[in-house]
Write a protein that binds this DNA or RNA. Structure first.
Length: 666
DNA sequence: AGTCGAGTTCTTTTT
DNA sequence: GAACTCGACT
């Protein structure tokens, strides 16, 4: 067996009896020979366990931690995985290169970005920044584009571009395939796309897709860098492989020219095709990596046989029948069947939930054992209000996110501009806080500042202080201008000199503090948030690292009221629940048009909705409740809802219908 | 020309 | 709720 023992730097890990700790199927995969391997691990079959033991196994064979690249799909998954590896082997997670594709892309581009035009110091636009960036550009280049009602808005235009980039299809082809309704606009979109790409590079800003695209470009065009990483990462592990898109699969294949790739996934859980996830990646893996060993892990340790019967049935209903798996085998003993619960409306649904949750906690379950899953954020609104009213603690892993709150974004924008003065979007957000300064005015001021800076060979921030520029600031903003600029200047200087936490501290205490006091009534709560950013910054030595983390971690939620370890009910979207398990799961809003979502059905994505339902039900260990309201009131008139087709497709013997006791509503 | 406030409409999923 | 539209105001 060739695990390159010669290179071993003897990582000390405790001795492990792999055979005793794993089942037959897992053991085979964990101890696979180096070489391409596809691990098809069904829901609840110990996928993460297999992956972490694989890492431990590699270490036990003398592979050094820094020779392993661990790619995951979400930040949460990355954290979880590295944590478990550390628990198992004692090797700290930071000694591995592990994280999302985007993180790894950023990390490599920071060091080696020059050949593809990225100087160190580039900043990352998050989704909404990228949207307004694109929107402004379109208004400038093709002023009538948004006038037409049928044309895509900035957001959808961004999605169209993104789809083309993530699927590695030229824009024309991608539009024809995924957005045929806009095919006749292709001629107008092409130059906008090119301008979008050009302008980002000019300002040294990148969007999410750039982190992947430039990485691939770099690996393909810069032989030296490519060789460096190909030799360094002797073992690649890819989690949730079914959700990779073509761009990501290409990155994996390029770094992994040596074919020592272990791809782990479950085709039945592919739920990101709207982001370009390519179902075929997993199917064609053996073709792209000749000699690939295929391992199947089908024993389910998570759920009761009753829950699995229902889950398996969901897959049977797939059209067309596809994929690798037929059935999950239950390991656990029998318990009650899943419950089907019909309620009048979402309010009654909330009341039922709360009542049942009280029952469950009196049976001995902790609140944190219970999760409520839904298709879209807004479905949790009613429940949130009821829970708050009854002061039942809950933790919501979706909804308003910490880094998306206005004050956090404001502050981050200042940091970004101070760090990269070319970042117009960041400047627009900062300057736009002043009265009578909007996007247009800010853009002009920025333009002037860049020119002055170039002509006089001074910094952009200094240029903002020049008399010539100050004279162009609108009168209403003139008062505050000097203190804003001074604050930016302090922050910019600190960026170059000090630790990130000191820089953030300066920004929090600077001009923005005064602004915040005036702008918001809950000034203190918001200031608290910003102070916690100082603590966050303390974890970083490098400003760019911290800024990137701020943007890439934007799914981190605001848990101002609840600490993560608290005993609290979990509310989450199905997407965010992926990979997690809970003793008790409630799936709410299981009505036609909600789950499956109307729009998804209209766009022919029914099968993905079904997989999403499959993911939902396979989260449950002991008890599963499937809830649907019969009346929906979105806006104005109440409309009657039909139970989800996913429920109707289930034979009645697979579940038990629960009658709810009507209580007085008021 | 550009900003701002009032009123209206539609809400997916994540890096 | 946020994002958009429209008309008034600077």
């Amino acid at each position: 067996m060739d695990f390159d023992l010669a290179r071993s730097s003897a990582t000390d890990i405790p001795p492990m009896d792999f055979k005793a700790e794993l089942n037959e199927e897992q053991y085979e995969a964990v101890t696979a020979e180096p070489g391409p391997a596809l691990v098809l691990a069904g829901a609840g079959s110990g996928k993460t366990r297999t992956l972490t033991y694989r890492v431990a196994y590699l270490l036990s064979k003398g592979v050094a931690p820094n020779e392993i690249l661990l790619l995951t799909f979400t930040n949460k998954a990355a954290r979880e995985m590295l944590h478990r590896v550390e628990e198992l082997t004692g090797v700290p997670g930071r000694r591995f290169w592990g994280g999302t594709f985007h993180h790894v892309g950023h990390r490599i581009l920071r060091i080696h970005g020059e050949p593809v035009g990225l100087k160190s110091g580039f900043t990352i636009l998050d989704q909404s920044d990228a949207e307004s960036f694109l929107g402004d550009l379109v208004k400038e280049r093709d002023p009538t584009f948004f006038k037409e009602k049928t044309h895509p808005r900035a957001r959808q235009l961004g999605e169209i571009f993104s789809m083309s980039r993530n699927t590695c299809h030229p824009l024309e082809e991608s539009i024809r395939r995924f957005h045929p309704q806009h095919e006749e606009l292709t001629g107008r979109m092409l130059p906008l796309f090119e301008a979008y790409m050009e302008r980002k590079l000019k300002q040294q800003v990148v969007d999410y897709d750039d982190l992947l695209e430039y990485l691939l470009k770099l690996l393909r065009e810069d032989a030296e860098t490519a060789r460096h990483y190909q030799e360094r990462f002797r073992h690649l592990l890819v989690d949730e492989y079914q959700d990779t898109n073509t761009l990501q699969a290409n990155i994996v294949d390029t770094i992994g020219v040596h074919h020592r790739i272990m791809a782990v996934g479950d085709d039945a859980q592919c739920i990101y095709s709207w982001r370009g996830a390519n179902y075929d990646n997993i199917v064609t893996f053996p073709d792209r990596h000749p000699g690939a060993a295929v391992y199947k892990i089908e024993t389910n340790y998570r759920s009761t046989p009753e829950i699995l019967d229902l889950a398996n049935r969901v897959l049977v209903n797939q059209v067309p029948a596809s994929g690798f798996f037929k059935e999950l085998r239950a390991f656990r003993g029998h318990r009650a069947r899943p419950y089907m619960v019909q309620t009048m409306d979402s309010r009654e649904q909330a009341q039922f939930l709360i009542k049942r949750i009280e029952g469950l906690t009196s049976e001995g379950y902790n609140l944190s054992d219970i999760a409520v899953l839904y298709r879209a954020h807004f479905q949790a609104m009613e429940l949130q209000m009821e829970l708050a009213r009854l002061s039942i603690p809950f933790q919501i892993t979706s909804g308003v996110r910490f880094f998306e709150q206005a004050h956090v974004r404001d502050l981050v924008a200042q940091l970004r501009f101070a760090y990269n003065p070319n970042d117009l979007t960041a400047f627009q957000r900062t300057a736009g806080l002043l009265p009578k300064v909007g996007p247009k005015t800010a853009s002009k001021l920025h333009q002037h500042a860049l020119e002055i800076a170039r002509d006089r060979n001074i910094s952009v921030v200094d240029a903002l202080q020049s008399e010539k520029l100050v004279s162009k600031v609108p009168k209403a903003a003139a008062d505050e201008w000097p203190s804003l600029v001074q604050s930016l200047k302090d922050v910019a200087e600190s960026c170059r000199a000090g630790a990130p936490s000191a820089t953030v501290q300066l920004a929090v205490a600077g001009w923005y503090e005064d602004y915040l006091r005036g702008a918001y009534s809950n000034f203190h709560a918001r200031q608290e948030d910003l102070r916690s950013l100082v603590g966050f910054a303390g974890r970083f030595e490098d400003m760019q690292d911290m800024l990137a983390q701020l943007v890439l971690l934007n799914s981190e939620t605001s848990d101002r009221s609840v600490d993560p370890d608290a005993d609290a009910l979990r509310l989450t979207t199905v997407h965010q629940a992926k990979g997690l398990e809970f003793p008790v799961v409630f799936v709410i809003g299981l009505a036609e048009n909600l789950f499956p979502l109307r729009r998804a059905v209209e766009e022919n994505n029914l099968e993905e909705e079904r997989r999403l339902f499959y993911v939902s039900v396979t989260r449950a260990k002991d008890e599963l409740y499937l809830c649907f309201p019969t009346i929906g009131r979105s806006n104005g008139p109440a409309l009657s809802l039909k139970p989800s087709r996913f429920l109707q497709d289930l034979p009645t013997h697979l579940y038990e219908s629960l009658r709810i006791q009507r209580e007085r509503v008021w």
